[in-house]
């Protein structure tokens, strides 16, 4: 090959740089779309029933940081339906309750699922009670 050594060197470098493009394409990590997660979550119509031993009673039920149900109860038994995700790992309900009486009182919460499975938990308190209640189908 004839010509200036500088030109020759420049051509060699240019050829090597051009080779880098297919080399990079061949060796780069394949960008695959992420696989969908298999986190269990299914929205179910959940039936909540609340029973208090003392009236008047004010309660608030919070689910995932949002208020689900607030009630100034004038009857000892109340019930409502909610569409919420009920995974196999269960759900946590934050319950805050206030009774006018300072005597020992209780609030029972029953969670019923469409398949008939029902779970219940009870809070006890004198004047107030605050607790995080976990409801799981396998408990």
């Amino acid at each position: 090959m004839r010509g200036s050594p500088l030109v020759q060197a420049g051509l060699v470098v240019a050829a090597l740089l051009l080779l880098l493009i297919p080399l990079h394409r061949l060796t780069q990590r394949e960008q695959r779309p992420p696989e969908p997660p298999v986190v269990s979550s299914a929205s179910k119509q959940v039936h909540l029933a609340v029973r208090t031993t003392a009236l008047p009673c004010r309660f608030q039920i919070t689910f995932l940081g949002k208020t689900l149900w607030v009630e100034d109860a004038s009857t000892p038994e109340l019930a409502k339906d909610f569409d919420i995700n009920f995974p196999k790992e269960g759900i946590d309900l934050v319950v805050d309750v206030t009774w006018e009486t300072k005597a020992l009182a209780a609030l029972e919460i029953t969670v019923s699922l469409p398949d008939g499975n029902a779970m219940n938990k009870t809070l006890w308190g004198q004047g107030t009670a605050n607790e995080v209640l976990t409801f799981r189908e396998d408990e």
């Binding site: 986190v39 979550s41 995932l64 940081g65 790992e89 269960g90 309900l93 934050v94």
Partner: peptide
């Protein structure tokens, strides 16, 4: 502990 339980309750149990 009561504060922790309330804060953790903001997170679905299947995302823990």
């Amino acid at each position: 502990d009561s504060w922790v339980k309330r804060k953790v309750a903001e997170l679905p149990r299947n995302q823990r």
